[in-house]
Amino acid sequence: MADIEYLKKLANDNRKRIVDLVYLAKSGHPGGSLSIIDMLTAIYELDVDLNAEKRSKVVLSKGHTVPALYAVLNSKGIVKDEEMSTFRKINSRLQGHPYTGTIPEVDATTGLLGQGLSIAVGMAIAKRNMGDNHHVYAIVGDGEMQEGQIWESLLQAAHYKLNNLILVIDYNKLSSYGNVNESMNLEPLADKVRAFNFHTIEIDGHNMEQIVNGLNEAYQVTDKPIAIICNTVKGKGISFMENNPKWHTGVITDEEYQIAMQDLGKAEVE
């Protein structure tokens, strides 16, 4: 059984890294990075061995939330501490969206929304044919679910019964513009994904026990791809960011940085 308290602490540390990255870059997408970080932390901790030749892969299709990925990779020593201040700056390995060219441990170059689930389908087919029993995760934003290609790949993943493919939907209900479902209604989202023949699990994406249970349930599925819909809060953990679409992207001031670190410090004590 996974150590829930340990995972929570790791996730909180990764939140600090996300805030650092965006603060130092004076640019980036903190809101959606903070909403997915609990899930991303758990996936890397429980199922991704970055030192193994054959391993589970993670396609961060909502590539703008790359601070979450760099936070995890920093915690693993792949992104060095001295690199953290170079995010989004010239001559840096830390590009504004995931790029395999500078960081080989990044599993897919993404950024153009809608493509990552299809990439994961290709990876999952290859793994299955090669007898590699690891998983492929596609992490998709709720706004990204409006992309047509997502629905193409939902068909394909189910057609090929890719039970090694886990689609994670970060359902924080907000996109850059405001409420996702007001801009283009996704509901009933779980029913739709289920109707596409995905084993569909709904969890609170900030509850580490539910996250671990959800992943464990996913690993047991034998006949279809899995979707884990994570109900999340955009900007989770930072008082002034939570549920505020302004923080899809934004510049963190010195004062805001202090408040954010205080929020995360309190969370640590709790």
């Binding site: 493509q115 990552g116 299809s118 990439i119 389908v121 290709g122 990876m123």
Partner: peptide, 8 residues
């Protein structure tokens, strides 16, 4: 994109 995933 599936081709891209296979190549990866």
């Amino acid at each position: 994109s599936i081709a891209a995933g296979l190549a990866a």
